[in-house]
Amino acid sequence: MVISSYVIDTIPEKCEEVSSILVTYPGVELHGQEKNRLIVTIEADSVDETYVIATKMALLDGVLNNNLIYCNFEDETLCD
């Protein structure tokens, strides 16, 4: 299980809309919201999958920034 957290900046008027879409993504949880900032975690089976979901979030209409804060990938195997 790969666990990561993000701070997402949105256009203020779009914040509600963005957060309601985000939570429909698999493995995504909303933990807090203050003004136009959202705190979100993603739980996915792999880092690659995490990237896919995080990119989707970043490309949402109304999202200004998607900042990765923390990533734990101890369950992943490292090679190459």
């Binding site: 933990h31 705190i39 975690t41 369950d75």
Partner: peptide
């Protein structure tokens, strides 16, 4: 990852993000 460790790691993740977001 066992459940309790998962909960722990997620907690860390949230805490850090919250701090970074400026909500002490």
């Amino acid at each position: 990852m066992e459940l309790s460790r998962r909960v722990f790691v997620k907690g860390v993740a949230v805490a850090m993000a919250a701090t970074a977001a400026g909500s002490l």
